[in-house]
Nucleic acid binder design. Sequence first.
DNA 1: GAGTGTCAATGAACCGTTTCCAATCGATAA
DNA 2: TTATCGATTGGAAACGGTTCATTGACACTC
Lengths: 340, 340
Amino acid sequence: MGKATKRTVTIRDVAAAADVAVGTVSRVLNDHQSVTKQVRERVQKTILTLGYQRNAIAQSMRSARTKMVACAIRDFDIPAFASYVKAAEATFRSAGYTFILASTANDKDVELSLLQTFGQRRVDGVMMTMSDETDPDLVNAITHVAMPIVLIDRELVQSVDSVSADHRAGARQATEYLLSLGHRRIALLVGDPKAYPSRSRIEGYTEAHRSFGVPVDPHLIRDRLLSNEATFRETAALLGRSERPTAIYAAGLDTLSGPLRAVRTAGLVVGQDISIVSGNDSDLAELNTPPITALRWDRSEMGRHAAEMLLDRIEHGRQSPPRRIRLPVSLVVRGSCRPA
Amino acid sequence: MGKATKRTVTIRDVAAAADVAVGTVSRVLNDHQSVTKQVRERVQKTILTLGYQRNAIAQSMRSARTKMVACAIRDFDIPAFASYVKAAEATFRSAGYTFILASTANDKDVELSLLQTFGQRRVDGVMMTMSDETDPDLVNAITHVAMPIVLIDRELVQSVDSVSADHRAGARQATEYLLSLGHRRIALLVGDPKAYPSRSRIEGYTEAHRSFGVPVDPHLIRDRLLSNEATFRETAALLGRSERPTAIYAAGLDTLSGPLRAVRTAGLVVGQDISIVSGNDSDLAELNTPPITALRWDRSEMGRHAAEMLLDRIEHGRQSPPRRIRLPVSLVVRGSCRPA
DNA sequence: GAGTGTCAATGAACCGTTTCCAATCGATAA
DNA sequence: TTATCGATTGGAAACGGTTCATTGACACTC
């Protein structure tokens, strides 16, 4: 007897059961004025008894707002992203937004396809990076996205908001620290210079050398190191050279464990045979024996700023000029560096 | 002149421009049969020129499928979650689903409110844990969720699918290893026994003692340790006792750095003055000096299995009985334990 | 040439909200 | 008593897709 299919209960069912018009139920749901206390309570009771659950899809359909925000990161594995994503999600959630998260693997095609997906889903805003700041397709896609966007640690596209860390200053600080300890052969391990962080780290490293009057040996700069494995291999290669570096500045994202493994494999001891500075502070850096001197900046702050900028754009800021936030980077000196 | 508002282009605009009916455009979009090659190409060209972007909201509205999946984890900060979330997201994305991620902070109210949000958003499936497997509100919410759900590392709710690791066997293995080295005062640090992992670790620990005929000292079991700070404090307290433990089994999630800090603060040396087994393998465990003996299981596999089970439920599995996957846990022996 | 079958394409209904205009009602003012 | 006004409520249109019954065109058969 009866229909076997249990239809989900809609606003119309509520209206019928409470003997009011659908418009009235909607007004109750949205806390609009001009609904009698009596009617309001009757509707609310009906909602409870029927177990009505508002359909966010229909709501978005009508209002053209999804209350969803998308974020693309390079890789979930990278601990450096965790605190920043965490802060962003918390900010969005407390503002009533739902958070979509995806990873790009630093791949242009994935980035483009995610942008398309986000567009089709009509998210209210996007937070992301890009693998290559100079790629015309990516730049074009980023600048023509329909919704507000905040770039993280990218600065070349001038037309959108961005939040980044001052990697140039940080790199300069770290390099000058090593130079002042007397090191003259400092290896620099970085990621892809097509993106702002690595690019500006190379700049900072070069500036520091210039200010100390020390020539830069291009062989000591190893870039495009995007994985622990790659960093391990490059470090091992550097350590195998006749004139091996006396210090390593491991500046890439999540590239500390590679060098540590390589140093250990080569039978060397950090802080004695070789000095190390990590470009990203972490538990690993802090708890290593000896603890590793590292650069740090407030990643939660980064996520929070990005989220707040985006929310501001979504809810108020129509056409105000793009804003740029750059967070300070500082050097935490520990025990991994000795005078050369 | 003209309208200032630039309306977004809809399927109707495409239909008008290509001089066909909306239904035809829809069939082109969905790769339906019975569209002339000629018409198909005309429509596709129009889509390109107009820059039409299909509206996923409207699509979901009609089809009652959102192609979105939600996942709630305890905290983004916990590296153990990264690889599992990563594998899950990859699986979902390659199946055409979008991934919503939220954190619960292990808080019942957050969990309930997220379930409600996911329900309102009409996601097609949910992947999550729960802070307390015995809480009636949570159990009720989980069992009455409208969409398919997969629980991670939770086994008490029998009516839904679940994926977990065999923590009891793992704990037993770790404890027996320490007992076989002669340790008789083994501290156990775990999270909240109201959830499956800690509960079964305590079981495994107890079983191991029983099989060795060694009585369990309840003072050595410290539970409800949910943060690095809490674990640090408890370990420090244990190390300060007159009869301090000779070994620590740090079984909680992400609770290795706390004990390591506490041991260092107490002026002790891991592997000499005290033995340590970590309940979760990590870079930190592997790269510590000495490397820490640890339990491990395939977290990517966990994420993949969970995602595949969920996809199966969503796309085929209507009413098949709940499935339960339990992954094996193994002990990786390194250098952090010495005979007592 | 009428009847039949197949394949393409049309166009309207529908999904569940929000919003806006019209209608109703009670109270107050003239 | 009647006109006026503000506060509530009703009801329908609109959002942008998908789907399905229907129509139109064409080829084929007898």
